[in-house]
Nucleic acid binder design. Structure first.
Lengths: 121, 121
DNA sequence: TCTGTAATTAGAATAATTCTAAATTATAGG
DNA sequence: CCTATAATTTAGAATTATTCTAATTACAGA
């Protein structure tokens, strides 16, 4: 994985939730010969190894994210995605489900401040 | 929407989380002339009207689900998706985020009983 | 019955992602 | 240092889910 570390750094040091294409374009600045299939290969490897997260959002290309525990806030008007930290639900979920869980994924839909602004004139 | 009600019934009366193609194949039994673009049109309409939910899962076609409040359990080994009812988190989330939310989406990854069986020999 | 709007059909188009085969690069052993 | 083997990358074709376009059909109201 010649590019593995660069891609991992990119994801870890950016607060955006980049698509494979955005990662590809950024990486290309430093390594002009790189090809998008290589980016997908590396992303899939990093993902399988549990080093990054993948965010699937309806009708959009997948986005890649750091692996640290956090949740997501999505504006239901403009689609803007941001990070939030909600208290860890694991123990609670395990109690309710009745067995141990691997992980969970929480997305909260809301109206972001910018869109709320436009809403009320 | 000639097929809207049929599609809605299909989704509401099935415990599966069907893809557009599965819905199309089922609908075709009753209406052989129907075409998959029509199924997508109707699903998109029902979705925009808030009558059904859409579940995006990584690397898989979207699945459609009834709109009643519930959460999802996904086996991290075999990918099997099932419904669970976790206590409503809305009030808690609003308190933590500090504003009102539209909705949320909770997916819990675990090892399903069948896969746990195979795990421990 | 006529007319206009909305839904459906057929099939082409698009976009994200994966696949294949060849070429290149890295790695380990002698 | 040289060679063999393995792993990664490249280029570009292929795949798949979904959307789009244009033509056709259904349907409701005048």
């Amino acid at each position: 994985m010649r590019y593995g570390q660069s891609i991992l750094d990119l994801i870890n040091h950016s607060s955006d939730h980049m698509t494979a294409e955005q990662i590809f374009l950024t990486l290309k600045e430093q390594f002009p010969a790189v090809v998008i299939a290589t980016v997908y290969n590396n992303l899939n490897n990093l993902y399988r190894q549990g080093q990054i997260r993948k965010i699937s959002m309806e009708g959009q290309p997948d986005r890649y994210d750091k692996h640290t525990r956090h949740d997501h806030l999505i504006c239901c008007r403009c689609g803007k995605l941001s990070d939030i930290m909600i208290s860890d639900l694991t123990a609670d979920l395990e109690k309710q489900i009745g067995c141990s869980i691997e992980s969970y994924d929480l997305k909260v839909q809301y109206l972001c401040p910018a869109c709320r602004e436009k809403e009320t004139p």
